[in-house]
Amino acid sequence: MKELVANDGTVIKKVKYKKTAKDRVEIGKKVLSSTLAQIFIWFFLLMAWLSIYLIVVKSIKTPTQDQKWPFEPTQIIWRVAVSNYSIALTTISKFIFNSFVITLIGTAGQLIVPILTAYAFVRFRFPGKNAIFMGFLALMMIPGTLTLTSQYIIVKTLGMVNSIWGVILPAVSGAIPMSVFLLRSFFGGVSQEMFEAAEIDGARDLTVLMRIMVPLSMPIIAVLGVQAFMGIWNDYLWPSLVLLRSDARTISVALVSLTDQFYNMTHSYSVAFAGYLISAIPIIILFVFCSKQFVEGISAGAFKM
């Protein structure tokens, strides 16, 4: 059926419309391509979720189940499942605390320092402003591997080996150039009139920052926050170099050594996988709360040059 519609939108007459052979081919093509698209998307989805599936399924198996059916879901024996998780939890609990302390302070630092810096770049005029900003951009080009050894020597000289600050401060520092670069473009987009108004009301810079800048830039701050949290929580190399005392280790360092240790004991990865899942819980929670802001921030168009 096709409707003949007048200019003002009223239906004049309904006309029977016969689909021609050409129309059928067109419709067929459309159905085929959208079905194909769905198949592809589902393939990507399944592959993306494969790791999560493997972690969950393997973490609740007995060693025999794991050897017989390495990938299939098996009958859940609750006693085994619970014991896998409780063993994993007791072995990594002290590292969870270390990771939490380092990650929370580090994330706060990775947000506060670049926010202050970006605000200064957007709001103040001062000598050397451009030179300092160019210096920031140049630092983005220097590979981390080049500075790795010298950074380690500095951390050692400052007596920060085995201290949480030896992990936190370099992590905060390393994130500054990129974060300032992204925040500056976001802050710069906030309308100038708003500040003038706030200033005439006598608002101080800190108030302007907290009441105007930060709320208006929440999407990019969410992106930086999530990335900071995940980056520090999951970092392996640097903590493994700095935190040498075994009780000072972070969770990702502990998990790597536990994987081998448990495999040698039980010939299965169940306990290690339970540990992986436990270690991902804080990030899952973070994602539940921030995913909307995160998607918004990524989509806001700051990620281009």
């Binding site: 989805l45 993306a48 999560i52 493997l54 972690i55 992986y276 991902a280 899952i284 994602f287």
Partner: peptide
């Protein structure tokens, strides 16, 4: 879109071990 981002929660280290 959301379902494709969630697997980001798996740390690189864990992905490598798997």
């Amino acid at each position: 879109r959301v379902m494709l981002i969630i697997p980001m929660v798996v740390p690189i280290i864990v992905t490598l071990m798997i």
